[in-house]
Design a protein around this nucleic acid. Sequence first.
RNA 1: GUCAAGGUGGCGGAGCGGUCAAACGCACCAGACUGUAAAUCUGGCGCCCGUACGGGCUACAUAGGUUCGAAUCCUAUCCUUGACA
Length: 365
Amino acid sequence: MRHQFFRSKFGFYKLPLFFPDATRAVVKTLDSKDIESTKTEGILVNTYHLLKEPGRRVIKKFGGIARFMNWKGPLISDSGGFQAMTLVKKMPGMGKVTDDGVIFKPIGGKKILLTPEVSIRFQMDLGVDMVVVLDDITPQNVSYEEARKTVERTIFWARRSKEEFLRYCESNKFTEENRPYLLGVVQGGDFPELRKECTQRLVEIGFDGIGYGGWPVGELGDFNYETGKIMAENTPSNYLLFGLGIGKPHEIVTLYDLGFRIFDCVLPTRDARHKRLYVYNANSIDEIDVRAKNFYSYYVPDKEKYYSDSKPVSYACDCLLCANYSRAYLAHLFRIKDVSALRLATIHNLRFYSILTEKLRENKT
RNA sequence: GUCAAGGUGGCGGAGCGGUCAAACGCACCAGACUGUAAAUCUGGCGCCCGUACGGGCUACAUAGGUUCGAAUCCUAUCCUUGACA
């Protein structure tokens, strides 16, 4: 039986949940009350970014990130590996990956050594509900041999992370009931046998769930659902399956059907800032059918044809934007480059995603 | 009225005899964005034909002229801005 609920300091939340990325303890252009208004239940923050700013001391003083940003809901932190790792692998001048961890030197910043232990400790200090192990990301288009190496290192690090996690829980007197979830991450790129092996070896180490790591989409935007299937088939039924960095609405629906229950992604928020709003192809929230073939489309807010359009962006939405303002007004805000355009668009897209998870919860499959 | 500077594509603004359908910016159109170096990036943008390489047509206030060749030089006209009356 798959999990039905996500345990958080603030209670139990029905799955599935989508966690927009509040990488630096803020969903860009929104504050915590805005996020709440979109009926978004949880958010994801990033270890690497928060380690840099505001840093360990401030976090400790507030007793965790939730109080720091006044967020009262599910909270997950990412290991920080993704940023350092993808950047270092893209631009070797910025640092390197060794068995010990990632040494990363951002432009104009000071060197940071991120090890599995450092990552776990800091995430525990953040006081989140789920911590994610540091993993070695399999880059796109690498050989089997190279992919295999990343899997080996991912497993090695996962084991060290687990040990560090147990140590921390013990010395800080966490119990099985109040400790955070620990998530392992599956690598192996597009090699099914590697993903399978990685999944099985993570399960041997023992986690509360595993995440779909690396790049789920190919160069042509084709999503690799096969990996998701392999993960689901090779994990105990009480494991939480997490689609890290996933994804587009229809991808979430498909992975949900495979057993995935947690997702996080920058798409709704970044797209909003880049003038892409998501709109259900329906005339009311009740009429939305997330299993219909093309159940949503994109709306580009500042087109000339909308300059005087008095309709809302969507009738199948009850967000701050759709409930109060016309397309014409939004277009105007974007045209004069007022920051409120980004805020309203972000609020709208987050509400789109929260409606998506609401629909999945109703619609048992 | 006199003198001066100037009139370039939807707008701003380069160019000042050939390599100019005209830099660059804005606007507009299309596309991308998946554990956020991203309020970003890419492409198109006179008209017509072609998927494209390309070809044709009309264009740099208007009308003439000089030249093998003009947005670029000359003349006239119209307009704009500034200075002086």
